[in-house]
Write a protein that binds this DNA or RNA. Structure first.
Lengths: 272, 272
DNA sequence: TGAATAGTGTCTGTGAGACAATATTAT
DNA sequence: ATAATATTGTCTCACAGACACTATTCA
């Protein structure tokens, strides 16, 4: 039984090897919004929901794309690890980030048992266009989703591919889904799963929080803001309803954006 | 640089000791609702929001209360570990459970570096009254919360104590709070923090999901259901509004509950 | 009979969906 | 002038908050 008389004595004699150990990693989904090309002098630039992927140059999954990530050091928390990795990839600090989910499938990494805690980060892509880590690339995503599954098409201007996941309702009271990867030839590890989880989280959260403003520049028009909501949610919104909802979250500035072949728009700022 | 020609070759030669390793644990917040005493022959039994705690009989934190938990084995996922631990404590299977958050502070365990992934489980306490693990005990909680902080009072009929946490807004766009434990003399490890996180999650989720039915018996009156919502949310609800909201989630059965000094109530069942 | 809960009716204000209308610009 | 976006007005419908009212039981 217990042979120690104090916590100090116990700790001094504690053998930390009694339980098997494992390595942990952190994977970060960095979301942003990209501008497409102007197809017509009157039209707004199309916007795309995009994610930062890194091409692996070592085994395992050499030449596949993966989420930025890295091993957890013994002298840092998961938040600190995620912040460190994010800074490595983007050279940016003070980025919005939240913990997403911890994945622990036994064979999610072919090397050994690795548990990974994923994070979701939101950035304004314009802040870092030329500061990217060499192997990193922004992929625009087009996401088709229904009750049965999700199809995500990726395009970085050079490479195109898609992944397909099925959704299975695992629990009726919470409406939670289990994702099963049906097609994935280009993403390493279980990152298709991680990404689907992140997309789901973001879609939910932009409905009841203001986190979308982390992907916006300081000044933006309401039309641009609406475009961002629309590409993330994957559906069109009605102008007056949208404006009513965000009216108390933004403040009008005296700046104006002209140059489109149409009425100029007032620029707004997040009120906080 | 990279000296291998195939993934197989790489894996065969992989040295899994290159990164430092650590132990992981799983802690489970098991929530339920308890019936208080009938104070008056007419009145309904009061309901209490309650949580299952275990008294530690070994160091560290000997004699303190903690959440049921245990180390992650190398041949199981976190979900499986949580299910195993839950079955050990309650002898119950098929319990509602969801992953909550992964805590990784450097000194959260005085023995060594341990990262813990917490889970939240919801049970109908009546299903397991006499099947509890020896050191486990249900504590009723009374939760006082405002924008500044949370005060949770615990009572298992024998022992009473309270913990106090401050809330600090860490990020304005998401409205997320950082909890700082201000008073805690009875809960081991960082479990005060874990519990506050779980309470917050549950309070949020019962507003937009049906998970509360996991804490209900098969047949219940709408008054009882309303009481459960009220003790979890910590506020009174208006009868007609409540009934409108849950009307399409439940179905009336032909069962009736009599015996109170008042009009009998119809018993309902979750429709799913 | 009265205290207590069960259950319903209904008024009102808020807010989202829908559609229409006006404003302004570059070509 | 025209196509395109910017911006506002307004009608309607659904629904939550609030309060009032009826129903039923048991000491």
């Amino acid at each position: 039984m217990e042979q120690y008389n104090s916590e100090e004595e116990f700790l001094k004699n504690y053998d930390s090897s009694v339980f098997e150990k494992l390595s942990m990693t952190t994977d970060i989904i960095i979301f942003s919004v990209s501008n497409g090309n102007r197809t017509n002098y009157r039209k707004l630039k199309e916007k795309y929901f995009s994610v930062l992927l890194v091409k692996r140059n070592t085994y395992p999954y050499k030449e596949k794309w993966c989420l930025p990530g890295g091993f957890l050091n013994m002298d840092e928390t998961l938040d600190e690890a995620a912040t460190r990795i994010l800074a490595t990839e983007t050279n940016l600090h003070n980025i919005y980030m939240e913990q997403l989910y911890t994945f622990s499938d036994l064979n999610r990494d072919p090397r050994m048992r690795i548990v990974s805690t994923s994070y979701m980060a939101l950035v304004d892509k314009n802040r870092l266009n030329d500061k990217l880590y060499p192997n990193a690339s922004w992929f625009n995503m087009i996401i088709l989703e229904d009750e049965k599954g999700i199809n995500i098409m990726f395009d970085n201007g050079i490479e195109e591919f898609n992944i397909v996941l099925e959704k299975h309702l695992i629990e009726k009271t919470s409406g939670r889904y289990d994702y099963v990867v049906v097609k994935n030839d280009h993403l390493a590890f279980d990152h298709a799963l991680v990404l689907a989880t992140g997309i789901s989280r973001l879609k939910n959260k932009i409905e009841y929080t203001d986190i979308v403003f982390n992907m916006m520049p300081e000044y933006f028009s309401l039309g641009e803001l609406q475009q961002v909501y629309e590409v993330i949610l994957g559906k069109k919104l009605l102008d007056p309803a949208f404006r009513r909802i965000i009216a108390d979250k933004v403040e009008k500035t005296d700046k104006i954006k002209t140059g489109g072949g149409h009425r100029p728009s007032a620029l707004f700022r997040y009120k906080g």
